[in-house]
């Protein structure tokens, strides 16, 4: 008897039409305290630490039918801390978010961070996450190319690839997102050192993966299909892409994984009346949203 399962409604139409009635329930109160909605993802390779702060609104009553984003919370005190270190992150109106350059607050794999957000009228929100340690020995084994027709004279071309790596975390489950994207080399100063990183865009997650045992160090994906570009004919070796294509491995913390998975699942299921409803994961105490972390590895396709 959860909310409006369309399948049930549909099947009950013959009976409901005979006797049933629909009425608005004005006297039922759904208790809903407005909460802070926080989004922050820590990645040591990012140039910026960014925290988005919004507020939730009631499901019933004035304005409840609006589908817009609402106004961001601009006056919150946003504090990021790790051990004895802490920094207050200021609000940037042009970003509609609180942000600092990553060089102002060092992000280290394996370290736990705490985020506190407070403002008048809301319960203080707090969350913590640990940046996963990068994996080592990332290797791959490639299979054949497959061509999937999209339109006339347009084929998407995928490469079959199996990725393998060794986890450097002890006694912890590993959470991974594997996918593909267009990569560009970018020179960047990370923690005082000049380095070159691959900046990804047009990314897409191909698989959400987790190892089943805490003690298992070696991990291999199933053979997955990664997009390498487009071709005009079936089996045409001439493959066009917007740039060099990469497979990526995001080693994420469990919060990031569960949040991403639930967001994607709810969206995919949300429009379909024949699926189970999906709640969105949150690790924000007294609030909603996500405070997660990841480290990124790439391999050219």
């Amino acid at each position: 008897m959860k909310i409006m399962h369309s399948k049930i409604i549909a099947l009950l139409l013959p009976l409901g039409g005979m006797f049933g009635c629909v009425q608005e329930m004005k006297d039922i109160v759904i208790e809903s305290n407005p909460k802070l909605v926080v989004e922050c993802y820590l990645n040591p390779a990012d140039e910026q630490i960014k925290v988005v702060v919004n507020q939730s609104r009631p499901i019933l009553g004035e304005g409840s039918g609006s589908r817009d984003s609402g106004e961001p919370v601009r006056t919150a005190a946003v504090v990021l801390a790790s051990g004895s270190q802490q920094i207050t992150i200021p609000y940037h109106p042009e970003l509609h978010a609180y942000a600092i350059p990553t060089r102002q607050f060092r992000l280290v794999a394996g370290r736990t961070y705490t985020l506190k957000v407070s403002t008048k009228g809301f319960a203080p929100a707090m969350a913590s996450c640990t940046i996963p340690k990068p994996v080592s020995v990332l290797t791959f084994r490639d299979g054949k190319l497959t061509y999937v027709q999209e339109e006339k004279n347009l084929y998407r071309v995928y490469r079959k690839r199996t990725l393998s790596w060794v986890s450097n975390q002890t006694n912890q489950l590993g959470y991974y997102l594997v996918g593909n994207g267009v990569g560009n080399s970018v020179r960047w100063n990370a923690n005082g050192k000049d380095t070159t990183v691959i900046a990804l865009n047009k990314t897409a997650v191909v698989a959400f993966l987790t190892n089943s045992e805490k003690t298992k160090k070696n991990f291999s994906t199933p053979q997955l299909d990664f997009l390498v570009g487009q071709a005009s004919k079936n089996n045409d070796p001439k493959i066009v892409s917007e740039g060099p294509m990469y497979t990526f491995l995001y080693h994420v913390d469990p919060n990031y994984y569960q949040f991403m998975e639930s967001v994607k699942l709810q969206r995919e299921a949300g429009g379909n009346p024949f699926t189970e409803a999906v709640p969105i994961y949150s690790n924000i105490k007294n609030g909603l949203g996500i405070f997660g972390a990841c480290v990124v590895h790439v391999k050219k396709l």
């Binding site: 759904i30 208790e31 809903s32 407005p34 909460k35 909605v37 989004e39 922050c40 993802y41 990645n43 990012d46 910026q48 960014k50 988005v52 919004n54 507020q55 939730s56 609104r57 009631p58 499901i59 409840s64 817009d68 984003s69 609402g70 509609h96 978010a97 990031y256 967001v263 969105i280 909603l288 949203g289 996500i290 997660g292 990841c294």
Partner: peptide, 11 residues
């Protein structure tokens, strides 16, 4: 119980 906007920032 309520509803909220997810911006979908860089993460």
């Amino acid at each position: 119980q309520g509803q909220y906007w997810i911006t979908g920032s860089s993460g």
